[in-house]
Simulated assay, not measured.
Amino acid sequence: MFKGFEEFQKVSKDGFDASVRSFGEMNKGFQAIAAEVTDYSKKAFEDSTRAFEQLIGAKSVEQAVEIQTQFAKKAYDTYLAEVSKLGEMYAGLAKDAYKPVEAAMTKKVA
């Protein structure tokens, strides 16, 4: 009877430890994602400010349209790259957060 209780205690402890490690991985991943979004936001703001300054100095409507077109293309390309990068980061976060749980489950089955 005590052996069953000890086994239950060990399995519970292993599960708790796996959960703690998993939450730790999630925390690291979310911090990295937050840092990435912050960096992207700063860069996007700087690019917008620079484009606005160029628009103010435009000598003609054609030049203003060209400045706006270049800004829009760059902003769109940068946004797509950032969305792709964030998607990869979220996928990596899920994989890393699941590893401790997977290891604990493998350990219990074996």
Rank of each mutant, 00 (worst) to 15 (best):
E46G: 03
V83T: 10
A97M: 01
G15E: 08
S12W: 05
N27F: 15
T69A: 11
I56E: 10
Y40V: 06
A64G: 11
M105T: 14
F71D: 07
K99Q: 12
V37K: 07
D77N: 06
G57A: 06
F30A: 03
G24C: 01
L55P: 11
F30C: 05
M26C: 07
G57I: 01
Y40K: 06
E25L: 03
E36K: 11
T69I: 02
V20C: 06
T69M: 06
Q63R: 12
D96W: 04
A104S: 12
V61A: 15
K95H: 13
R21S: 10
Y79C: 00
N27C: 11
G87P: 02
R21P: 02
Y79M: 05
D96P: 08
D96E: 14
K108W: 08
R21E: 14
G15I: 02
T69D: 10
A44C: 04
K108G: 05
F30E: 01
E53D: 15
V83L: 03
N27Q: 15
I33A: 04
K85Q: 09
V101L: 02
Q31F: 14
F30K: 01
D47P: 00
D77V: 05
F30P: 02
K59W: 13
E82V: 01
F71C: 00
I33L: 02
F45A: 15
Q31K: 13
D39G: 09
K43G: 07
A91R: 13
K28G: 00
K99N: 08
E36S: 05
K13M: 12
K74P: 05
K74L: 10
K107V: 05
G57N: 12
M89S: 03
K73Q: 10
A81C: 01
Q54I: 04
K59G: 13
F8M: 14
A51N: 02
L80M: 13
A34M: 12
P100M: 00
M26L: 08
G87C: 02
A91L: 11
G4L: 15
E6V: 13
T78Y: 07
Y76K: 12
A72K: 09
K28W: 00
E66V: 04
V61W: 15
L80W: 04
A97F: 00
I56L: 07
V61H: 14
K99G: 03
L55D: 05
S19N: 09
E102F: 07
G24E: 04
I33E: 04
L93T: 06
K13C: 06
G29Q: 00
G4Q: 15
S22E: 00
Y79F: 11
G29P: 01
E82S: 04
K28V: 01
V83E: 08
A97H: 01
R50K: 13
T38L: 14
A110N: 14
G24S: 03
A72Y: 03
E36R: 08
